[in-house]
Simulated scan of single mutants.
Amino acid sequence: MRLLAAAEAADHDESFNLDGVTYRRFDPPARAVRLARCCTWLLRPNGTRFDVGATGADCFWGR
């Protein structure tokens, strides 16, 4: 999935463009090791957040 690859290559608060849409990586540092994240969050142009990794899994598994 191109969106997931682009999101993983971006740093926290870094914007990137894919297919004419600008996304921003939202992945602030965890406050503790036990709170490490397993999600790759992006901000859409309208400001809503979504987990691009979960979206890719849902598409793959047909959820």
Rank of each mutant, 00 (worst) to 15 (best):
E14L: 04
R63V: 07
T48L: 09
R2I: 07
A6S: 11
T40W: 07
C39Q: 15
R37D: 06
T55V: 09
D27Y: 10
V21L: 01
A36I: 15
D13P: 11
M1I: 14
L4H: 09
A10Y: 08
R37Y: 04
W61H: 07
L35W: 08
A9C: 12
C39A: 14
R2K: 07
T40Y: 06
L42T: 00
G20W: 02
D27N: 12
V52A: 04
A9H: 04
A32K: 03
D13A: 13
A6R: 02
M1V: 08
H12P: 15
T22V: 08
R25K: 15
R31C: 14
A36H: 15
D51Q: 00
A5F: 08
L18W: 11
G62H: 00
T55E: 03
N46K: 01
A30V: 06
H12Q: 08
D11I: 14
V52W: 01
D58T: 04
R31F: 14
H12Y: 15
H12N: 13
W61T: 10
F60N: 01
D27Q: 06
T55W: 11
R25D: 05
D13W: 06
L42C: 03
C39N: 11
G56S: 11
F26S: 14
L43T: 04
T48V: 12
A9P: 09
A7F: 03
R31K: 13
R49Q: 07
G62C: 03
L18R: 06
A32W: 10
G56N: 03
F50H: 00
F26K: 14
L42H: 08
T40A: 12
T22P: 12
N17W: 13
R44S: 03
A57G: 04
T48K: 00
N46W: 12
A57L: 15
R63E: 04
D51G: 01
R34V: 13
T48N: 02
A57S: 15
V21S: 04
F50P: 02
E14Y: 12
P29G: 07
G20H: 01
R24L: 08
D19P: 02
A5R: 05
L18V: 05
R44V: 03
L35S: 06
S15N: 12
D19W: 13
R49L: 03
V21E: 01
P28N: 06
R49E: 12
L4R: 10
H12D: 15
T22F: 09
